[in-house]
């Protein structure tokens, strides 16, 4: 069996009175890609955003149950959210570079984390852009605004930005949903590269994408985890009928 990075047990999430996640149990393994699929509103984004506690900003949100990262409870009082988010990076659905230069976007995470060493920052920016397969396209114009890049490039820039602070886990919330097929292919290729170094959790609407890139797949519906298994099993021989119906596109 693989080494567990994140362990989720009896995890519930509430928006006020509404229970958005119901008794979720699953393990996320080191250096594997977990794909989360399910119809809109099934709680997959809520689940993803719980892992780095991005839901903290929502008024009236609360959780119970446990979610452990390296054995530490993510929702415990002792957990330093800033520390957690350095460990668990995130890439959003819509690329959201800051209105700053390409260089400053990637350097941002280093700077807010107190890195002042210029040489180190320059080195790290280059390395991150290379890891995000963007370096060759931008190396001669690092000081131009990030908004001058194409949509696909902006999304890879956001990935580079997340990589710069050396997270251990990378959360991706439909990172390719706003991209054209070529840019999507690039991002998918990138994910295959990245899993050598990182544990990746990716939410996707695109079934083929989940099948292509993930090692494990979790199928969520109406806040419940319906089925969780190796991707190959889920897509070839699902245990539950409803999973099969969703995967074959009978509803969605």
């Amino acid at each position: 069996m693989h080494q567990t990075k994140i362990e989720v047990r009896d995890f519930n999430f509430f928006y006020g009175d509404q229970r958005a996640l119901k008794d979720i149990e699953l393990d996320i393994y080191n250096n594997k890609v977990l794909g989360i699929i399910g119809p809109s509103g099934c709680g997959k984004s809520t689940f993803l955003r719980s892992i780095n506690r991005m839901n903290d900003t929502i008024a009236g949100a609360r959780v119970n149950g446990t979610m452990l990262i390296d054995g530490q409870n993510i929702f415990s009082e002792k957990m330093d959210v800033v520390e957690l988010r350095r460990k668990v990076g995130m890439v959003f659905q819509k690329s959201n570079p800051f209105p700053k230069s390409i260089f400053d976007n990637v350097a941002y995470g280093l700077r807010v984390n107190g890195r002042k060493d210029k040489a180190y920052i320059e080195h790290k920016v280059e390395e991150s852009l290379k890891d995000a397969a963007l370096w060759e396209e931008v190396e001669d114009r690092l000081s131009v605004s990030a908004f001058d890049l194409s949509g696909g490039q902006q999304q890879r820039l956001c990935i580079a930005r997340a990589l710069a602070i050396e997270p251990e886990v990378l959360l991706m919330d439909e990172p390719a949903s706003a991209l054209d097929p070529t840019a999507t292919a690039k991002v998918e290729e990138l994910i295959q590269e990245l899993k050598k170094k990182y544990t990746i959790v990716i939410v996707t609407h695109n079934m083929q994408q989940a099948a292509r890139i993930s090692d494990y797949t979790a199928f969520f519906m109406l806040g419940e985890l319906i089925e969780y298994n190796e991707t190959q099993k889920i897509f070839t021989n699902p245990e539950k009928k409803i999973t099969e119906e969703y995967i074959t596109g009978r509803f969605g």
Binding site: E83, Y108, C158
Partner: peptide
């Protein structure tokens, strides 16, 4: 989306508002 991105990078709320939102 700016503040989300900043917070997700481990910036504090103060850092986020001063370094990203204010500019």
């Amino acid at each position: 989306t700016y503040s989300d991105a900043s917070l997700a990078l481990g910036a504090s709320r103060w850092q986020t508002v001063i370094r990203v939102k204010l500019p």
